[in-house]
Simulated assay, not measured.
Amino acid sequence: MKLKKIVLTGAAGRLGSYLREPLSQMCEALVSTDITDDLGKLYANETYVQADLASYDAIFPVLEGAEMVVHFGAIVDEKPFEELLGPNFVGSYNIWEAGYQQGVRRIVYASSIHAVGMHKKADFIGIDAPHRPDTFYGLAKCFTEDLGSMYWDKRGLESVHLRILSAAQVNNARALGSWLSYDDLIQLVTRAVDTPSVGFSIIYGVSKNDRAPVDNAKASFLGYRPKDNAEQFAEAVLAETPAPDLTDPGEMLQGGPFAKVDLGQSGIAQMKIVNDKKTV
């Protein structure tokens, strides 16, 4: 049975571009939102609303009648705290509070490995690992996970927090463990939406990689069963990769480059992310 209305935030982003079509197939009406002026061509049952996450007055009417919100909107890099405060901290509060006031049943949130980025990869952490943010960006993910937990405990608003490791092309050694393919991303979000009851849940967003550094066993009830494996890229990637520096936190810790940059300094700038955004 299709949902009546889903709201997707961050629809103009790279990951949002891959979620729009499958989400549109799960509901009668998909409302996509972002801060860009124009989203371009829309799917048959999709509408676009320009809205700033940092403005409660802008977000509140967008959520009217929504059963679920897939919240991927944010600044997706480390920045000075003041720049992240509006979209990443206040924006999350606005989504949860407006969602509660509008009767939303569930929020599916793009959290991140950077909420636990200072844990060692060798520790093979599970979903119950304590928060150890590697940046202000990671701190915003911790805040929103705790926000979701509180709104479930106090107000009965369900949420699933997807700790995405790296959803981008595999062109570096870290990604051999951290890769989340776009097909697996879609499956992950779909399971977060269609699982009958989730309460407050955390799950790692990672594909079925031989070298995955995290354990999703305690989130198996969500039904996420990834199919892709980054090992297919290993030979080519490792041939271009120098021997690792075992004293480098970017090599040893879950957060990778984000674990080694100074607070407020870009982590994305240390990576080779290809913008292979999907077009309608």
Rank of each mutant, 00 (worst) to 15 (best):
I59G: 06
M68R: 06
L19Q: 05
A115T: 04
E64M: 12
G103C: 13
N88R: 00
A51I: 01
A58R: 08
V49E: 08
K79A: 07
V69Q: 06
L84G: 01
H119G: 06
V31P: 01
L30D: 02
H119W: 13
A74W: 00
A58C: 05
A115G: 13
D77Y: 00
V90A: 14
I107E: 06
K120R: 15
Y93D: 14
T47G: 11
S112N: 08
D77A: 08
S17G: 11
V70R: 05
Y43V: 12
I59W: 08
Q101P: 01
R105S: 15
N94A: 03
G16I: 11
E46L: 05
A110G: 04
K79G: 00
A122V: 07
V70C: 12
A115H: 08
A66K: 00
I75C: 04
E97N: 13
N88H: 03
G73K: 02
M68A: 14
G99T: 14
N94G: 07
H119N: 03
Q102W: 02
S24L: 12
Y109Q: 10
H114D: 13
Q25W: 03
F72R: 12
I95Q: 03
L23R: 04
G91H: 02
F81Y: 14
K79T: 00
G117V: 12
S17L: 12
L15K: 09
I35Q: 02
G65T: 01
A74N: 11
P61Y: 07
L53F: 01
I35D: 02
P87G: 00
P22N: 02
L39N: 10
S17H: 07
C27S: 11
P80D: 04
F81M: 10
F89M: 09
L63E: 06
N45S: 11
D34A: 14
A122S: 15
D57K: 15
E28P: 11
L23H: 13
L23Q: 06
A51D: 00
A110R: 09
I113A: 07
A29L: 15
S112E: 06
P61D: 10
E97F: 12
A29F: 13
I75R: 01
V69K: 05
D57V: 14
C27P: 10
E67T: 04
K121F: 09
L84E: 02
A115E: 06
E46A: 02
S24T: 07
M68C: 14
A58S: 15
Y18E: 05
I59D: 07
E78Y: 11
A66M: 09
S32Y: 12
D52P: 13
Q102T: 08
E64I: 11
D38T: 03
N45H: 11
V90Y: 09
I75T: 02
H71Y: 03
Y43M: 13
S55P: 13
A54W: 09
G99H: 07
R106F: 07
M26Y: 00
S92A: 15
V108L: 12
M68D: 04
